[in-house]
Amino acid sequence: MNTNENKAVSPWSEAWHRLKDNRLAMFSLGYFVLIVLLCYLLPLLYPISPTDQSLSFGANPPLSKGIELRYDAEQEEFDEFITEKEFVELYSENGESDLERLVADQQTELSGMYFSRSDRIHLLGTDSHGRDLFARILQGGRVSLGVGFLATLVSLTIGVVYGSVSGYIGGRIDACMMRVVDVLYAIPFLIFVILLMVVFEASKHQLLLIFIAIGAVEWLTMARIVRGQVIHLKSQEFVDAARAIGVRPFTIIFRHLAPNTLGPVIVYATLLIPAVMLLESTLSFLGLGIQPPNASWGTLIKEGADKMTVYPWLLIIPSLFFSLTLFAMNFLGDGLRDALDVKSSKD
């Protein structure tokens, strides 16, 4: 290590150095930052709105361009937005040669109608409503990532509070509280979330509900981890000292104990984000999660799966985005675990 031996190195910067050596984790971190920036910032620059539809254009593979059809050459807005295939089949007089002329001149006139090639390129193609897939993926990514972060935050809060209170109090109350966790563990998470989604049927606060429903089931493991940490910590001197000078239990738990569990909590939270995104997408895939017109990666994959026989790119491209993001989060979580692991840093 090239850090100065005399200078005190904080555990966090030490962990950062270890993480930097893990190329897979750093690559994942880079990919993840890129995806977040793309989803949240690119829509400001990207010219096509995810809600722009054109039924006459319909579903087209990646990198396809459309043709604007105007009944009057001067007007700004086009009347129809059509595909090249449609142009050849429905409007052209000489078949392919008209299309070649159109491509060469960028515009042409045929029987009183004006055709011009649109300068919009649909980078990843369009869906069956003619909506731009890339714009929709960015929109869906915002929802999926947003759910991932916020639901993780919800479950983190519940888990840390529950686990540290249970661990600090101990005794019969602790046993009781952990028994509740065991009972909830017995039900598969997905069943529980589906139950919650059935109970809180509300269209307006749908997104909020998904955060709460997922957060409400995913806190269990967090609570166990935090409880274990707190039980280990509470017998240490600094807690005895705090108690001796009369610090109230509430303050001991949340000022002295909970912050010390941060390492494992961060690692688990990083691994929780992909798990939560997976749960949200599974729900949306089953039709119990995000409802249209809102979209998430789960609903996009569902739409793609329904139409995969005719428009395979609608399935493959969103699946790719989603899977790569899951991989990145998992690798990053593993890397953080190695970097922050207190045991491995002791020599």
Binding site: P274, S281, T282, I301, A305, M308, T309, S319
Partner: peptide
């Protein structure tokens, strides 16, 4: 382990089925 069921399923169906 990372790939979700609802991605593997439709992709398998697309590849082997369609």
């Amino acid at each position: 382990i990372c790939l979700p069921t609802f991605v593997i399923g439709p992709l398998l169906a697309l590849f082997f089925g369609v």
